Amino acid sequence: MDKILQLLGLATRAKKVVSGEELVLQEVRSGRAKLVFLATDAAKNAEKKVTDKCSSYDVPLIRYGTRQELGKAIGKDERVVVAVTDAGFARSFAKLVST
């Protein structure tokens, strides 16, 4: 498992992660989502909805991993979209992605 998925698991254990399309969109709208992960194998309609919402609310979006990988990292079944609600974790993810 790579560092991004490991950090996602750590953020989950710290209760700083929300998963599921509707819950993530709710977090984006409320301003609590600091970063959103979208699975690379997401359906087109889910991809468009999440991408549009993140861009209109200025929330960084990272396309990363498959739905199985994202789900496994947070200890759940398949997850297409995951939001990180902590600014510190979001900065850590941004550093990992940029390197």
Results as ranks from 00 to 15, higher is better:
residue 26 Q to L: 12
residue 89 F to A: 07
residue 20 G to V: 04
residue 31 G to V: 01
residue 10 L to E: 14
residue 49 K to P: 13
residue 88 G to E: 09
residue 93 F to G: 00
residue 43 A to M: 15
residue 65 G to Y: 04
residue 4 I to H: 06
residue 95 K to M: 10
residue 84 V to H: 00
residue 99 T to I: 11
residue 50 V to S: 07
residue 15 K to T: 11
residue 57 Y to R: 12
residue 53 K to M: 12
residue 83 A to P: 07
residue 94 A to G: 15
residue 36 V to L: 01
residue 56 S to D: 06
residue 43 A to L: 12
residue 95 K to N: 11
residue 39 A to C: 04
residue 87 A to K: 09
residue 33 A to H: 05
residue 24 V to I: 05
residue 50 V to Q: 04
residue 4 I to D: 03
residue 95 K to Q: 12
residue 50 V to G: 06
residue 9 G to C: 06
residue 93 F to T: 08
residue 63 R to F: 15
residue 6 Q to C: 11
residue 41 D to I: 03
residue 47 E to G: 15
residue 78 E to P: 07
residue 93 F to C: 02
residue 40 T to E: 10
residue 8 L to K: 06
residue 71 G to T: 02
residue 64 Y to A: 02
residue 66 T to L: 05
residue 86 D to T: 15
residue 71 G to V: 03
residue 93 F to R: 02
residue 46 A to E: 11
residue 57 Y to W: 11
residue 44 K to T: 10
residue 37 F to C: 06
residue 49 K to N: 10
residue 56 S to K: 07
residue 89 F to M: 08
residue 49 K to T: 15
residue 65 G to L: 02
residue 59 V to M: 04
residue 67 R to T: 05
residue 54 C to P: 06
residue 38 L to R: 02
residue 37 F to W: 05
residue 20 G to K: 04
residue 5 L to S: 10
residue 34 K to I: 13
residue 20 G to W: 06
residue 9 G to Y: 02
residue 65 G to F: 04
residue 20 G to P: 00
residue 92 S to E: 14
residue 30 S to M: 00
residue 58 D to N: 12
residue 91 R to M: 13
residue 11 A to R: 13
residue 95 K to Y: 12
residue 8 L to F: 01
residue 59 V to W: 08
residue 82 V to A: 05
residue 2 D to G: 08
residue 79 R to H: 01
residue 93 F to V: 08
residue 49 K to W: 15
residue 73 A to W: 02
residue 33 A to E: 07
residue 41 D to H: 10
residue 3 K to C: 14
residue 29 R to I: 15
residue 96 L to R: 03
residue 27 E to A: 09
residue 56 S to A: 08
residue 74 I to D: 03
residue 73 A to Y: 01
residue 78 E to S: 12
residue 84 V to M: 01
residue 90 A to W: 05
residue 9 G to N: 05
residue 10 L to A: 13
residue 57 Y to C: 13
residue 49 K to I: 11
residue 87 A to N: 10
residue 82 V to P: 02
residue 66 T to F: 06
residue 67 R to S: 11
residue 92 S to M: 14
residue 38 L to F: 05
residue 91 R to C: 13
residue 4 I to G: 00
residue 92 S to H: 12
residue 2 D to V: 05
residue 78 E to N: 14
residue 44 K to Q: 13
residue 7 L to P: 06
residue 49 K to S: 13
residue 48 K to D: 11
residue 12 T to E: 05
residue 77 D to Q: 13
residue 71 G to R: 03
residue 86 D to N: 14
residue 12 T to M: 09
residue 49 K to G: 04
residue 25 L to I: 09
residue 33 A to T: 12
residue 35 L to A: 01
residue 10 L to W: 01
residue 1 M to Y: 07
residue 21 E to L: 11
residue 97 V to A: 07
residue 34 K to M: 12
residue 11 A to H: 06
residue 80 V to H: 04
residue 13 R to K: 08
residue 44 K to N: 09
residue 38 L to A: 00
residue 57 Y to V: 11
residue 71 G to K: 02
residue 92 S to Y: 14
residue 55 S to A: 11
residue 12 T to N: 09
residue 45 N to P: 13
residue 1 M to G: 14
residue 93 F to D: 06
